[in-house]
Design a protein around this nucleic acid. Structure first.
Lengths: 209, 209
DNA sequence: TCTCAAATTGCGTGCTGCGCACCATGTGCG
DNA sequence: CGCACATGGTGCGCAGCACGCAATTTGAGA
């Protein structure tokens, strides 16, 4: 997980990936609304300092490149939950973990708006947020001791949390000045996580099979 | 909503749309795993009895065509909930509506597997399921009297429900013979909807802001 | 019947995704 | 220290796709 622990080659690869995705998002934003269609692959590659062929070795579509940051962030959702104290109730741990993860840098309004409000990017944006579901479901299963093969609770909760994060983001973009993203995120998450703790005591029943 | 109530032109258009999407999904399934890349736009158009140009008038990508049925079904989620008795509690109404909607024809295993288990279709599949969120959120807001502009509850719940449906579908595909889709769907939905009724009484508090 | 709007189609174009072969640069071994 | 290998970057080229445009056909309404 730590860059310093990796090979030089691996680090370079990571750097290149970030350079490309960063350039892609930046260029799209600079072109203003409807900027996606104007940004050509060649532009992104040039801005990132690589050939257009190399760009394609990392991403198979502009949408994927632009949403890469959001996707990478979501992938860390499992770790974010796992790093919470084990004795913390699931609902509190989930909220704390998500707030910590998604407000590490306070999200960039322009970037998030580009990702979430561009029709052509809709599918990729959903994909980016749903990247959190797998790791998150595993972390929830590990924390509660529920076997995800027999009980849908971990996967469903993970999906609900990911959905709440997405809704919070959209709301934060629309009613911009109404508060910090952290506050909105908490409020969104509290709509779905309260159901969670009720399940926890049933571990013995659930894990029995 | 009823075909008979529409113009002849509108009906024809609907028929063409279904013919194309049906042909797209069928051809992809026939090609077996990895069938997506093998199916050309020309094949789909020919199978549907239209020109490839007309195909593009209806869909802007193969993925969109293949997932059209799923998307159309999801769009009816709001109506499904609205048509439940007004005095039915939200959680029961939600479960009943979703079960009714998504098991009207018992889903086709091959089709659902194609949509949900093909990486290239992942974004479009998520889009298809998330189509339910908007209408569903409106229906929830109308039923509970909550103003979606000030309270995230309708949108978050809608996203959670849509996510639960998706997870249920995936689980139904994997552990195929474990039960009917309706049963799995109920079990998935009960992981997220119980939180709902608790919110209803707080309308005055929430709407105050 | 006549006129208008909507839908289908063929054609042409620019871009994209990707396979292939070649080259450059880290990496590990004797 | 030097050498062979593996990994990743690059240039080239192709097939397919999305879409704008303009002509034609067909349903809708007066």
């Amino acid at each position: 997980m730590n860059d310093d622990a990796m090979d030089l080659r691996t680090r370079m690869r990571q750097t290149t990936r970030e350079a490309i995705s960063h350039a892609a998002l930046r260029l799209a934003i600079e072109q203003g609304p409807n900027g996606l269609v104007l940004v050509r692959v060649q532009d992104i590659a040039t801005a990132a300092g690589v050939s257009s062929r190399t760009y394609n070795n990392y991403f198979s579509s502009r949408a994927e490149a632009i949403c890469a940051f959001q996707a990478d962030q979501s992938k860390r959702a499992g770790d974010a939950l796992s790093s919470r104290p084990a004795d913390e109730p699931l609902d509190e741990a989930l909220i704390a973990a998500m707030v910590e993860l998604y407000t590490d840098p306070e999200p960039d309004r322009a970037g998030l708006r580009m990702i979430m409000s561009t029709p052509e990017l809709e599918g990729e944006a959903l994909k980016a947020f749903s990247m959190a579901e797998g790791p998150l479901a595993e972390a929830i299963a590990a924390r509660t001791g529920i076997d995800p093969g027999y009980d849908l609770f971990p996967a469903v909760t993970a999906a609900a949390v990911a959905g709440a994060v997405r809704v919070a983001g959209r709301h934060w973009l629309e009613a911009g000045d109404s508060g910090s993203f952290a506050a909105i995120l908490r409020s969104a998450l509290s709509c779905v996580v309260p159901a969670a703790p009720l399940q926890a005591p049933k571990i013995s029943d659930r894990a029995a099979n």
